[in-house]
Nucleic acid binder design. Sequence first.
DNA 1: CGGTTGTTTGAGGACGTTCAAGTACTGTGG
DNA 2: CCACAGTACTTGAACGTCCTCAAACAACCG
Lengths: 228, 228
Amino acid sequence: MRLTDQQLLQQTPLYAELGPAVADRVFRNAVVQTVRRGGTVFHQGDVATHVHVLLSGQVALIAEDITLGPTIIEFFPAGEIFVAPAGLLELPHLVSARATEDSRVLSMAAQELRGLIAAESALAVAMTRALARHWRLLVRQIKELKLKSASQRLGSYLIAKAPVRAGATSFRLAEERKMIAARLGMTPESLSRAFAQLKTAGVSGRGRHIEIADVSTLSAHCRFEEGH
Amino acid sequence: MRLTDQQLLQQTPLYAELGPAVADRVFRNAVVQTVRRGGTVFHQGDVATHVHVLLSGQVALIAEDITLGPTIIEFFPAGEIFVAPAGLLELPHLVSARATEDSRVLSMAAQELRGLIAAESALAVAMTRALARHWRLLVRQIKELKLKSASQRLGSYLIAKAPVRAGATSFRLAEERKMIAARLGMTPESLSRAFAQLKTAGVSGRGRHIEIADVSTLSAHCRFEEGH
DNA sequence: CGGTTGTTTGAGGACGTTCAAGTACTGTGG
DNA sequence: CCACAGTACTTGAACGTCCTCAAACAACCG
């Protein structure tokens, strides 16, 4: 493992939770690879042999359907573990993982990880916490898909990405709009119209640059509930 | 804990994974309660203090939205752990849990569980596996919500509940139709129309009794992909 | 500067919802 | 066992949201 990769790894929440001693044992046999933007880390349907940690960049979990095309389940930023469930259960991946930016990906053998969870209690705790957090991301998304309109889902997504919880703000989206549309379960055309609708709620911006006049106003418009 | 509860507990996959020795330590301080059909195990928004194991009956995870009413995230049958993520992270529940049948629910303190995960490696492994399985349930559901029509979602749901993977079959649904509609992200009226549509794919039945002429035909109609 | 890709806008249609009414269960007391 | 009430389920009509298809426009990159 390169020195820069080592440094990136040390910045992850997972490393902090484990502490240096445990982390050294856990990641001893891990390998790191570069995945270029658009490159694939693993394919849906393949039996999971490794579990990954994203050191830098961003990956999208993509569900590919032969007839209806691909859709994005979730984006994962640097520092996240993905996708533990398939590896822990020795089952085929339900989704593909594709880099949406040039990324450095650390990979560890799933079989070894299963042994380490049994042997290193700090890792077991960290792993349950990571799975639990991701579980909650998915539940939130299901709630939004079932209960909210396209523009409300977009509003909630923007609020989650915004650097502040109230007042005016502006920021840059890491994802291109086509991808955001897939993540939100709509077409790029509908996303464009959702943006148009949110102008009345104080959302403006060109391309990936977003400006929100008042995050609280937008929250109200989207019935965005912080934790729930 | 009653003897009958003890017997129910021993039939759960979790107990089998842990083995009697570890299970005795893990469940030593657990308490069991009856929850009547319609009763609530915990409320969305409450900070999670306990993690539960369903000994008998069925519970639904319900996301309640002030404006748009409730929707069902998932049904859990007897034997399942629910809902570990909130308890592991000491966060508010994202969903409520309500019994859809008279149920016996075992509860253990979340704080104690966190300690036990660190101390009992068999529990750590079992917990990561349970979380991983549930993670996959949610991912499948998101895929269906984003990619499939109402009748295809119903078809996939019926296939998952069917006792066989091919050929003719008939069985009884544990849930009433209103609840299935909520689980599938549609109204009861749409569910009724989805059933009408699936008649062409060989689905018939009155009330909760379902007959499928050929599960394979239905799979093709719904683009149902076994594991994916 | 032209080609490629990404985004917006428009028109029409499909799917699902809402509202409203009607029909079929389910269980209870007579 | 039947009448009845209450609930669950189905059906119909009108509406709205989102999708599809098509075209124009903008941004990016060699």
